[in-house]
Design a protein around this nucleic acid. Structure first.
Lengths: 360, 360
DNA sequence: GTGAAAGCGCTAACAC
DNA sequence: GTGTTAGCGCTTTCAC
């Protein structure tokens, strides 16, 4: 484990060696370019920023020198004066999960396309981490806006509402009724349609393997499932942790406590995979004896045995949309206002029907 | 699509509205803190940096004011003077793949633990993107070192060797014999042991579904497979693209062109899943008629049917190790030297044996 | 213990 | 067209 914290003062450790064949290149600055070209730094700056008022010959000469020197303007210094550095902050968690990852990819794509770079703030423990510290870190990099794509759990972003950062914030939400400027995915609706599909297929007793219920996303899916049924009993519910392992364990437990179960809604594809696996091992045929539906539509879920019926949601699109809305807010100097549910965009998932829930 | 490129000059678009209830908070600076406290900025700076030579009472007073104002020092301005901003650059691709993602998680964890933040540079098209531009972008953020974890394809980092950046670079490599300061994973060795395992199980005719062979990682696995066999024929090889779909297609094609095949090495778990699926559909029992081995050991591969024999490799560890080595280089002012294969760390994968390759 | 001055690399606002 | 001046927010001298 490296202990870097102490070295901030600048004193270097004792064992410093330096490869002899390669002196430390100093950074090339605008001054050097200006000097070489025999002009002022200002003129160089004009060339860098494609300003019109530079003589063509001067411009060419300067560009040539820039190339020769391999000069690269410092985004940092530039940002300091411009008060704008074309970067966005993203607060993320659980990147090992499918949803967060896909969203980040969408964010990245849209940001790159718009010429923005990304600062990531990782929230390790959504339920306990100090939100303010994370925000401050991002703000200290002068990000122009912030995308919040960490799970809404407990009151971890009530802090946000009380102490709004000086830049626009957009929230990526898992629920249709979110309270900050948000791009939301209607998980509840998706879960409901998955459950209704099972009912339509003639299944009568539908269990559920949920995600960790403290998370909004898990809670919403749970609610969606519940809303499709007339009444539900505790026996029908088991909590998983998104992993295939917990899906397997979950199914076994459900069978035990709810023997009449003939279908299960697993709240993501991995848990569905675990459930199918357990069913196979116990000699229950899917979908004959047990209907199974998942959530996510990972590319591989079409190749499970049997192929998995699941809910597809536009994750990358959500990420992209969030960037677009955020940039719009930035451009119009719009601050994040408190309660704008109607302005928020709500994306709907889509049910993908495969063999795991359709007999024959 | 937002067109931001034109707004750099500062002129804002016409439709700018501003929410009335919330004026734009200006950033709080060190000067304001100093003024409030009735001291010089210098003294505040000393407090911020935990310098000893400040009167205890002064320090307390200043800290109090900092808290009240919610002052947050600007990492940007600080970095500009210190010439050090505690950030690392990471060049990544293909984050939707399991390997790259896991490595990034490892990198993130180690960097966070050491108090470093990360700048991501995304390489969209490893085979064609302008490497220099990506590097320049990272350098313009004054990153103190760079982790290169994009696939080695074609000559995309030969540019690196010719034009070494002014900061240390560490390469995350897929081959044991990499030429720059590297933390490598011995893919060839892993693939070889997977293939040898199949031979030991009595399989005689072993096909392969490779990844895109232009990538080092795919090529290395191919080589490992080949090295375990006495001689190989073109018929035994099909190229996939890492997706389950390509695995399914690949198996069908192999069966056709290499009918005596009794086992297949799929170069990642997803393709293995696709292959198993195809086999099931064609009435071939796994592992009875066809042995299958994958590569990656994703958490869910234990739940395929049958559970997948596969090669596990320490991806997160590789990422962490890369950070640690890079920080070490930074601390010792060590530049990346050209050829140091022996100094590079080589991690070995490990075969995980499950039912897909073991009859009974 | 504390402050004044200079400067990090760049750009905005004005001059000429 | 081009140069000068000032300043972004902070830290590093070096005074006192």
């Amino acid at each position: 484990m490296l202990a870097l914290t102490g070295t901030l003062t600048g004193t270097l450790t004792t064992s410093q060696k330096r490869s002899d064949d390669m002196a430390l290149k100093k950074q090339i600055t605008i001054d050097q370019v200006a000097q070489q070209a025999g002009v002022s730094t200002q003129t160089v700056s004009r060339v860098l920023n494609n300003r019109p008022d530079v003589a063509a010959s001067t411009r060419q000469r300067i560009q040539e020198i820039i190339r020769q020197l391999g000069y690269q303007p410092s985004a940092i210094a530039r940002g300091l004066t411009r008060r704008r550095n074309h970067s966005l902050g993203v607060i993320v968690t659980e990147l090992e999960q499918y949803g967060p990852m896909r969203r980040l990819l969408g964010i990245k794509e849209a940001a790159t396309a718009a010429g923005y770079s990304l600062h990531l703030g990782f929230m390790e423990h959504p339920e306990s981490d100090d939100v303010q510290a994370l925000l401050n870190d991002l703000l200290s990099w002068q990000v122009e806006g912030i995308i919040w794509t960490a799970p809404e759990v407990g009151n971890n972003w009530s802090a946000l509402e009380n102490n709004m950062p000086p830049v626009p914030v957009i929230l990526i939400s898992e629920r249709a009724d979110s309270r900050l400027a948000a791009v939301a995915l209607d998980n509840r609706w998706g879960a409901r349609s998955a459950t209704e599909h099972l009912l339509e297929q003639g299944y009568k007793n539908i269990g559920i393997i949920t995600g960790p219920l403290a998370w909004d996303v898990a809670h919403e899916r749970y609610q969606g499932w519940q809303s499709a049924l007339l009444e539900v009993h505790e026996r029908q519910v088991v909590a998983g942790d998104w992993s295939a392992t917990s899906g397997e364990r979950g199914l076994r437990q459900l069978i035990e406590q709810y023997p009449e179960m003939d279908a299960v809604f697993a709240c993501n594809d991995q848990m569905a995979l675990g459930a199918i696996h357990a069913a196979n091992e116990m000699g229950l045929q899917v979908p004959r004896h047990l209907g199974v539906v998942g959530f996510d539509n990972r590319p591989e879920s079409a190749y499970y045995c049997p192929p998995l019926t699941t809910v597809q949601h536009p994750l990358m699109e959500q990420g992209k949309l969030a960037v677009h809305k955020l940039l719009e807010m930035i451009e119009t100097h719009q601050q994040t206002t408190r309660i704008i549910p109607s302005e928020g965009t709500v994306l709907k998932p889509r049910l993908i029907i495969r063999k795991s829930s359709v007999e024959n």
